[in-house]
Amino acid sequence: MSARKKTLLKVIVLGDLGVGKTSLMQQFVNKKFSHQYKATIGADFLTKDLTIDNKTVSLQIWDTAGQERFQSLGVAFYRGADCCVLCYDVTNEKSLNNLSSWKDEFLVQSNVSNPQDFPFIIIGNKIDVDESKKIPSLQKKLLNITNNQLGGLNYPLFETSAKDSINVETAFENVARMALQQEELNGASRNDMNDDYHDAINIHLENDNSGCAC
């Protein structure tokens, strides 16, 4: 069984409230769209199995609340992430401008070992809406944001519509691929905690008092 061990990949979806994080995830995982998503409170969590280059991976996707920056709580949420998806709404300029603060927040909280080349991906959602409602000269603004030499967001960029299912699959396949690379880079050790078929011996029994000390 361990020869065909599934690789677990943790993906965090961030972005301002109302940009469509829940819709994107639902479209990708359950292939459905509804106008009826409630505001996400705290966080939600979905998993989906994919095959990437003949390798089965299990994507754990974390949907977060747009209003929260979580601050100290972020540590629990972001720990062990293999890829971070930064979302904005193509009709909402503020959500675009906030991308870099979401990125910073993630890096501060997650404490990843390679902040310089940690895999981020940017998704601009709601491209189905009328052209007149979109951010004026979006491409130029995007270029500014992604190519800014000082802390620019020079990351793969996808424009999607969760509503019409445009580009969602492609975007998340890329997410999975990037996450897999990151995971291989960092070694698989930390994901063992999520798969207890393999850790019957390796369990951290010696420090089990710490959890009960509260």
Binding site: I41, G42, F77, M193, D208, G211, C212
Partner: peptide
Amino acid sequence: QLVHYNLITKLRLDTPLWIIRFLRL
């Protein structure tokens, strides 16, 4: 204790990951 041990020590599932919505709503 058993539920606590299982969730927090064994699965290492931090409570904040799921409880916020329970509490706030």
